[in-house]
Nucleic acid binder design. Sequence first.
DNA 1: CAAATATGAATGAACAGTCATTCACATTTT
DNA 2: AAAATGTGAATGACTGTTCATTCATATTTG
Lengths: 196, 196
Amino acid sequence: MPESKDTKAKIRKAALRLFAERGYNAVSMRDLADAVGMRQGGLYNHFEGKQALLSNLMETHMVALLEALDTAMACVNGTRARLESFVRLHVAHHLSYPEDVFLAYMEIRSLDPGNRARIVALRNRYEHVLRGILEDGCAEGVFRIGDSAVHARMLLAMMTGVTVWYRDNGRLSRDEVVDLYLDAALQSVGLASEAS
Amino acid sequence: MPESKDTKAKIRKAALRLFAERGYNAVSMRDLADAVGMRQGGLYNHFEGKQALLSNLMETHMVALLEALDTAMACVNGTRARLESFVRLHVAHHLSYPEDVFLAYMEIRSLDPGNRARIVALRNRYEHVLRGILEDGCAEGVFRIGDSAVHARMLLAMMTGVTVWYRDNGRLSRDEVVDLYLDAALQSVGLASEAS
DNA sequence: CAAATATGAATGAACAGTCATTCACATTTT
DNA sequence: AAAATGTGAATGACTGTTCATTCATATTTG
């Protein structure tokens, strides 16, 4: 009873790591069970199956990301400040949960059509927030960009890529990395950062 | 027979499409043989195996990309012009060969250690060219960026992401997309594009 | 309190299928 | 004829999933 409830958490954690590391299709339920320290049959007491586990991981992550975004955006006014908040939240979140992010990005095509539609809808909601900020900035004449929809994708790809190279023991701290991405994002929309 | 000699090319083409579409691990040799119009056994007359086929596809692409880069860079002087050339080449190449690029980006972890080391070395050479340009621009005081190594990765992620969304029948032409990415890249290093 | 029963969880074998690869043999090309 | 190429069946390992069984712990009953 003490550990029965966190077996599910242990499975989720191990699955997240393995799926992100090797890819969904390259991880067998036996691999996963080994990583958790149990046999493959027992996994099915906690999850409907491999596909349900994947979509659970991805949906949990996307929902958490959207909630964090709503919270961060609720108390910010001004187009430039909203862009800053978005960038800070995005990069910081990606530095804190690199595996979740990497999985959500790489394994969308491993989802069943139904699950994929749900996850993609969540992702589009997220992307739409950034596009809205950029459109506002264009309408106000604050930003200088060619195309809001394209620029939103450029910024998202740029920022999301941080998970590919960042390591916690590296040359730069997380805060430094966030600042670097913020400066680049601001410059990319034609704004100079405030402090040199 | 006329087509017996280009069977190898047909296999490569089909494999490229399928691997990029579904992922290396989700494509079986049967799927591949079906797509080519032959039986799975025959594939082994042209390739050592599935892994060799993957690494052949990726290496061919990386070598072609590096050659195109060398050619494009050979006749350009000036830091800003070199950055422009790099961006134009990168985006245009990615628009022309989206499957090659997508595969090289997504399936590195599906490579055997030996093959992976070779491909990663090629990719590093490519990345190093962009970093060199950014470092030069910083040293000359032409670019305004926080960190050359990080900014190189930001730009590469941003530009490579074009393959995720661009479709040939979409709203924008390839040239328009290249120009949008060029403007964004120039602004991100603190330069305004020449023509408004 | 103690006996009986229910529950949640883990096991390990078994299932039906798929996997990449091999091979003896047929066919085609040169 | 010889070399290259394609076939179709076979191989053994591995796949996700199911299931009867076991076990320790709760809960209910006498």
